[in-house]
Design a protein around this nucleic acid. Sequence first.
DNA 1: TTTTATTGCAATACAGTGTATCTACATGAG
DNA 2: CTCATGTAGATACACTGTATTGCAATAAAA
Lengths: 230, 230
Amino acid sequence: MNVWDRPEPPTRPAPLDRERIVAAAIALADQGGLEAVSLRKVAARLDAGPMRLYGYISTKEELFDLMVDEVYAEILPEEQPGDWREVLCTLAHRTRQATLRHEWLADLLGGRPTLGPNALAVTEVTLAALDGLADLDTVMRAVETVSAYFTGAIRREIANLRAERATGLSKRDWQRASGPHVTRMLATGRFPALAKAVHDGTEVDAEVSFATGLDWVLDAVAAKLARPPT
Amino acid sequence: MNVWDRPEPPTRPAPLDRERIVAAAIALADQGGLEAVSLRKVAARLDAGPMRLYGYISTKEELFDLMVDEVYAEILPEEQPGDWREVLCTLAHRTRQATLRHEWLADLLGGRPTLGPNALAVTEVTLAALDGLADLDTVMRAVETVSAYFTGAIRREIANLRAERATGLSKRDWQRASGPHVTRMLATGRFPALAKAVHDGTEVDAEVSFATGLDWVLDAVAAKLARPPT
DNA sequence: TTTTATTGCAATACAGTGTATCTACATGAG
DNA sequence: CTCATGTAGATACACTGTATTGCAATAAAA
């Protein structure tokens, strides 16, 4: 047996770590959605057997949590400005942008408490920006209200975007013309206000709609912060 | 072969319809969560083979849509009061109550456009209540902002509730004492504002927190409806 | 009434999933 | 060189959603 026939020394498998696993999972999710993430595919992408992963994560849910926290690293603004309103506003917009980059995040947003280090860091700068502006209960209420808004708004935006993509039609065109079921329902005359809205509504840019609602909510928060609770 | 040995005339299977299928699926989800809903189990509950369902449903996603719309029937208030604010407020609270009855709804809320007949009916009474108070764009923004808020808030509430249930600890106790990871992070001193919040925060009832945030958002909407857009 | 066609249910089948268990081998110590 | 140990990998299991096939009972036709 000469040198060439001798089998390669069995290549010790490349060492794995959570970072690489999470990165592979995110890559899969970015291009195929969350349901394209299977432990087998993630492992394959790292030239490993599926069971290898269980040395670094204990369940698939945990992998999802890690993916979310990784995106929070993108969300955390590098240098935060002073004004509390600006902090909340950029937090909302950065979360939205991150979700547009990683649409699968919409499926996870708000689904579980976010306790990873990056998520905690985001919470920290947010709370820090509001610290002292009112009693702690009010501050918490403010943060939670704003984040409830943008979480819900982002999810809806992605949901609509997917629906449009699936039908190949813009929302209004589809509601008005093609949507077979909806059109029939509207034609029944049982939904006059809705019909009018669909008919007269103008298509608004998703970002300005998001920003507008956000401004309203921030206005409300500002009012409450100004005069601490009754 | 006597009469008793003679096999029963092959019992024609009980006729199926979407209603019964959806009801069975909801029953399963109510007691085991969304991931307890499998087509096989739903079918078994109706003494049918899995494939029977495909005569009434074309995919599992569609079943989920039907389940959601069924819950919207519970959400639709029987007789709506006049005031727009009251309509939006009760819509929010009824959605929350329905989600507390059917926790799985939290996983689906906002995940896809809601176009079932009951959901459309809910949208109809909502739009009707706001009709004429401002131009259509503003009205839409109002509805979407409020529903983004309560959607996000409900999801977070359920997420926390599940976490508490899983650890058997209240949120604050758990953050403060047990949560192994979080405690360590807080101890690093890198999150002073967060640490203070966890330390000084008082446990607030989920419903009042929901209602408070909702009131803030409704205040904001009221202000915008009063003076149509710039 | 007998034969054919049609319908709709059920069984089987397939490709995939998350995860538990078991086996074998490469590496460390003695 | 031998042995213990830990870890990578193979195998296995119980499921999943859904496509396809076959069958049996009814409706239609002769």
